[in-house]
């Protein structure tokens, strides 16, 4: 059942008061997926959140209150989500523009605060872990990379 939340644009927003749910349809050219994710994430703690996409590529966000909610409460929920969307979109753009500054400050902050590892930390470090994905085998030694595989090794497996 579709209800109208007074004051909110009907083509983009549906409400189902019986289910305490609202659906917002978002244009991904205005709100890219990472912006929708950023806005949706904190709402997971407060609502049930489901995303979907229609044939036109619009992303719908369904927020369902965890308890019964009045139309007023649902309207507030939509308003807060819309604010968070706008804020996330804005933050994404600002972060892109100020990336060098933010990364430099963050690197200095953690470099300064963490300092070098202690001897105990180095001893406790598990060097057997794969440090990072290395699909091109850059971190492998020449011998490891080009040595002949035994016949019984499975196809697609790399060097040990």
């Amino acid at each position: 059942m579709s209800d109208t939340l007074w004051g909110l644009p009907a083509p983009q927003i549906d409400a189902d008061l019986g289910e305490a749910a609202v659906t917002m349809r978002l244009d991904p050219t205005l709100y890219p997926l990472e912006v929708i994710y950023a806005a949706a994430y904190p709402f997971i703690a407060r609502c049930w959140v489901v995303l979907d996409r229609d044939d036109a590529g619009r992303v719908s966000v369904v927020l369902t209150a965890k308890q019964a909610a009045t139309a007023e409460q649902l309207r507030a929920l939509v308003g807060e989500f819309a604010n968070e969307l706008l804020s996330s979109a804005c933050r994404r753009e600002i972060t892109r523009q100020n990336r060098a500054l933010i990364e430099s400050v963050t690197t200095q902050a953690f470099g300064g605060a963490m300092g070098p590892p202690s001897l105990e930390e180095l001893e406790a470090f598990d060097f057997t872990d794969e440090p990072f994905d290395d699909p091109l085998g850059i971190a492998q030694s020449w011998e490891d990379k080009y040595r002949k595989k035994p016949r019984d090794e499975g196809e697609g497996e790399g060097a040990p």
């Binding site: 949706a40 997971i44 049930w48 959140v49 489901v50 995303l51 369902t64």
Partner: peptide, 8 residues
Amino acid sequence: HALANLAL
């Protein structure tokens, strides 16, 4: 609902 939240 909880499964959907966790998946998201």
